[in-house]
C-alpha cells in the first residue's frame, strides 16, 4: 500500500535528501529576496524528522503529525510554522485506506492550514503558488490512481514554482523589497516542489 507508514516514511526520507542536497540553492534563493536561512533551517528540521523511528508509530497519520510537530520545534522562521502546520493537518486527515480522493482531501487540509497560518493568497509569491495548482491537478487526475495524480501534481507544482519568478512578493520578508522582488524564484515554492516531487517518487 503506497500510503502506509513505511511508504510515508520513505517520502520524508526522499524529501530530506532533496533538502539536504539543495540546501545551498535554497539559501541562495533566500539571500536574494529574504534572509538567507531557508536551506539551513529546512535541513535542520528534516534531519530531525529522519531521526524519528517510523516503526514506533501506530499509523502513518500519527507519524505525519509528529513530523509536523518536529518541524515546528526545529525549523523556526516562517517555514517552521508553515511546513509544521501543513504536516499536522495532513496527518490529521490522512486516510487508512488507499483512496486517492481521500489523500487529495488530506493534502488540501494541509494547504488550508498553510493559508490560515500565513494568510497568503495565490499570486503573492509564496509556496501557496506551487502547492495550490499542484493539488488542483491531483484532484483532476485522482480518478486515474495515485501514481498519475501525483505525477500531474508534481508537474503543476514545478510550473507554479517557476511562475513565482516574475511575481512581486506580497508576504514575508521579500515583500519589503517591493518591485525588486520580481525576477527571483520563491525559495518556499522551491522547497514545496521538492516535497511534491518526492511524493510522486515514493507514494505512487
Amino acid at each position: 500500500m503506497a500510503i502506509d507508514l513505511m511508504s510515508v516514511a520513505g517520502w520524508m526520507k526522499d524529501f530530506a535528501t532533496q533538502i539536504h542536497d539543495n540546501a545551498d540553492l535554497l539559501t541562495d534563493l533566500d539571500r536574494e529576496i529574504g534572509d538567507a536561512d531557508h536551506g539551513a533551517n529546512m535541513d535542520r528540521g528534516m534531519r530531525a524528522v529522519i531521526d524519528l523511528d517510523p516503526s514506533t508509530f501506530p499509523s502513518a497519520a500519527d507519524y505525519l503529525k509528529k513530523v509536523g510537530m518536529t518541524l515546528v520545534s526545529t525549523v523556526g522562521g516562517a517555514s517552521g510554522p508553515l511546513y509544521g502546520t501543513f504536516f499536522l493537518r495532513v496527518g490529521t486527515a490522512w486516510p487508512d485506506v488507499e483512496n486517492p480522493d481521500l489523500v487529495g482531501l488530506a493534502l488540501r487540509a494541509g494547504l488550508d492550514g498553510i493559508i490560515q497560518r500565513g494568510k497568503a493568497a495565490i499570486g503573492e509569491k509564496t509556496l501557496v503558488d506551487a502547492l495550490s495548482p499542484a493539488l488542483d491537478e491531483f484532484d483532476a487526475n485522482a480518478g486515474d490512481g495515485m501514481g498519475t495524480a501525483l505525477q500531474a501534481a508534481a508537474v503543476a507544482c514545478a510550473a507554479g514554482r517557476d511562475a513565482t519568478i516574475p511575481l512581486v512578493a506580497r508576504k514575508g520578508r521579500a515583500s519589503y523589497l517591493g518591485e525588486r522582488s520580481a525576477g527571483h524564484q520563491d525559495p518556499g515554492a522551491t522547497s514545496m516542489t521538492m516535497l511534491i516531487e518526492a511524493a510522486s517518487r515514493t507514494l505512487s
Binding site: A78, G80, L82, R173
Partner: peptide, 11 residues
C-alpha cells in the same frame, strides 16, 4: 512584526 515571529508566537 515579522512573519516568522508572528506565526511562532501565535502557535
Amino acid at each position: 512584526n515579522y512573519t516568522g515571529d508572528v506565526m511562532n508566537f501565535e502557535m
